[in-house]
Amino acid sequence: MISQQFEYSAPATLQEALDLLANEGAKPLAGGMSLIPMMKLRLAAPEQLIDIGRLRELNYIRREGEQMHIGAGTTHWDVESSPIVRAHCPLLSETVSNIGDIQVRNRGTIGGSAAHADPSADYPAAFCALEAQFKLVKKGGERVVGASDFFVDMLTTALESGEIIAEVIVPVEQRGTGVSYQKCVQPASGFAIVGVAVRVSSEFVRIGVTGLGAKAYRATNAEEIYTSTHDAAKAAAVVADGADSNSDIHASASYRKHLARIYTQRALKEAASRMG
């Protein structure tokens, strides 16, 4: 399977990349784990690929005060193997180790996964539970968008033409917070039929759900019930309420909702047991 023809550039700096991305028909290429398969299937046919996968400026993990800043070009393996992430954002470590396989995690990037916004991707569940913020840049502009506004619809984000994710910002987890990512995996593709990311402490609970609907979401109704009752079953019972559930050969809409409830309950219990 061969993609359509395209022009290729590998700019040396982010600024140069943003200048090139301002051209109509230009698309950024990072790890390529989503874009290249789509190009091979001719579901995507960009005229020009701007390779941002080599930019060191987009490849870093650092802690600044109570926030973790992760460059958009950081690979899943770099996140998975990072002691800083494990210590300060264990939900990301756990979630990322569930993505694809070793080879995919070696190439795929945190920014690429977010920008692709696959409804069955693992990362977005954690982004929602973490209330992650995305620093978006384009030629002559920069803005920060929260996860709930960033994911718009299936494969659709708040990214504008010529704009890329530069950085993902997540909170440093405080002592006493337990986290868990529970996933019903589609065994052939490795994607989540449903995946639920939870953070819970004595003060708050956050629940992010992927795979169920067109986009990942934060289940605030379930969070409210858990806050008032501390009952995982009662909270999980409403996690899929109002969701427009996907349906395919792997799971019908009603079965997906059932799975979301089961996996929410598991994630809440596991996270609570890790509050320490």
Binding site: Y8, L29, I36, P37, G53, W77, Q103, V104
Partner: peptide, 24 residues
Amino acid sequence: SICGACTVNVDGKAIKSCAMFAVQ
């Protein structure tokens, strides 16, 4: 990019060479 038969190592990392352009 499912079966892994094309796996090679690039700069120390195992990758699926059917999901990477040679220019990369």
